[in-house]
């Protein structure tokens, strides 16, 4: 494997008048996780579809796993796996048959496919359902089977298009664990997500994309620093203490971003993680200011967009356009 798993320059795709992807540059180092973060219709899926040879770019060029996307699409296909937004499993075949068929079509040796399928079924918690038709699976099980299918031939690069959208919180955590395990084994991952916490949890590098363009990139910490990171909201027992609390907090070089005397709340921008929360609470208690409730706000995609573009997340109807592709 080359050091750079994915390299794209000026990647462009237009659907009629819509510039779905409008000059995206992207570099993904081998063995790392990169998240494409953006709202619906930002061009995330279109970018992934181009990089996985499903769509032909209108402009720009890219190499995936060292192969030229336009000139060597079939070589690219030997190195990648894709889990799309909608699960693509054969409902009439069993979980095991699904995996074995995809493995064989991905040019695996017959002798290697069976143990590999068994291994994946066990790892993805599908061993008990392995010989039932996939049509009888729950949504979470289908997702896991779909992910297993995209990994059967041990691809060097895995593309995950919104891997947790539509999953319940428990399945979502399970999916995160699976992805983390994969990365631990050296797989390069490019995932798309609408959730900042997901990008934060999984990705080494986050690329924020909006209207088909990259509007920010960096580690998730860098991004959060830009947005202002986490915020601590304290609800005090006594409204008259709010002003005193503010000067105490500001005395510790901590910015108070909001205060509301009527609601007895005060909000501070956190810069130093959980320890700082404890220090601020201790500080107020040392000065006999009683605290009723404590909230920690994590920045959301909306906060990122508000900071980067001054606009709230727009829910473009381009999404429906992408879905029909």
């Amino acid at each position: 494997m080359p050091d750079i798993a994915i390299h794209a320059e000026g990647l462009t795709k237009h659907f009629g008048e819509t510039k779905a992807v409008d000059g995206v540059d992207l570099t993904v180092n081998t063995g790392t996780v990169t998240a494409l973060l953006g709202p619906n219709g930002a061009g995330k899926t279109t970018t992934v579809r181009m990089l996985t040879t499903l769509l032909r770019p209108d402009g720009g060029h890219a190499s995936v796993a060292g192969f030229d996307l336009a000139k060597q699409p079939n070589d690219v296909r030997t190195k990648i796996g894709l889990t799309g937004q909608d699960t693509a499993v054969d409902e009439l075949l069993t979980g095991r048959e699904n995996l074995e068929m995809i493995g064989r079509l991905a040019r695996m040796e017959k002798a290697a496919v069976k143990p590999r399928a068994n291994d994946l079924l066990a790892r993805f918690d599908l061993a008990d359902a392995a010989d039932r038709p996939a049509g009888t699976y729950s949504g979470g099980m289908r997702r896991r089977l779909d992910l297993a299918a995209s990994m059967i031939a041990e691809p060097d690069i895995l593309f995950l298009d919104e891997p947790t959208t539509g999953l319940d919180p428990r399945s979502r955590l399970g999916m995160w664990e699976l992805i983390e395990e994969l990365v631990g084994r050296g797989t390069t991952v490019l995932l798309t997500t609408q959730y900042l916490d997901e990008a934060d949890q999984l990705a080494d590098e986050v690329v924020v994309i909006d209207h088909g363009r990259v509007i920010a990139r960096g580690t998730s910490d860098e991004l959060k620093d830009q947005v202002g990171g986490e915020r601590l909201e304290l609800k005090l027992t006594d409204a008259s203490a709010v002003e005193r609390a503010q000067s105490l907090i500001e005395g510790k070089n901590c910015e108070v971003v909001e205060r509301d005397v009527d609601e007895r709340t005060i909000t501070a921008a956190l810069t130093d993680g959980p320890k700082q929360i404890a220090r601020l609470i201790d500080l107020l208690e040392e000065h006999d200011i009683e605290i009723d409730e404590v909230f920690v706000h994590r920045p959301t995609l909306d906060d990122v967009f508000l900071t980067l573009t001054g606009e709230h997340v727009e829910h473009a109807d381009e999404d429906s356009l992408e879905e029909t592709r």
Partner: peptide, 13 residues
Amino acid sequence: EKGIVERFFTLPM
């Protein structure tokens, strides 16, 4: 419709 053909298209088949 179910994306199965698309999955095939990402394979070197």
